[in-house]
């Protein structure tokens, strides 16, 4: 029997690692991977609560929607990366500063 707290601590750890990736990576693809880790941590959390506390269907719907959002985010994000790469020959967000004031 695995205690609920294990899952929650695991997801907290995964979330923090992902956060580190988003904050620290130079490379925008690396940032995107960090976001994926964070989303996975959220899903673990949702499913853990579903499994332990609320056996209904609502938690599952949330997870499904997170999947959809993640897929959409990656598709658009990567399309943007390709587009920026094509114009600027870079994938480092700090070098893309067309909007800097």
């Amino acid at each position: 029997m695995i205690p609920l707290s294990w899952y929650l601590i695991f997801s907290a750890a995964l979330f923090s690692i992902g956060l580190f990736g988003v904050l620290a990576r130079k490379n925008v693809i690396g940032m995107l991977m960090g976001v994926e880790l964070m989303l996975n941590a959220v899903n673990i959390n949702l499913l853990a609560f579903w499994s332990y506390l609320y056996a209904g269907v609502n938690g599952l719907v949330f997870v499904a929607i997170v999947f959809v959002a993640a897929a959409a985010e990656v598709a658009v994000g990567l399309a943007l990366i390709i587009s920026i790469y094509r114009r600027k020959r870079t994938v480092v967000p700090d070098e893309v500063d067309g909007l800097r004031g």
Binding site: L23, M31, P93
Partner: peptide, 13 residues
């Protein structure tokens, strides 16, 4: 004041 997104994120956090 750099206009770099990640630093803003750090500050937001």
């Amino acid at each position: 004041h750099t206009g770099r997104i990640q630093q803003y994120m750090v500050m937001a956090m």
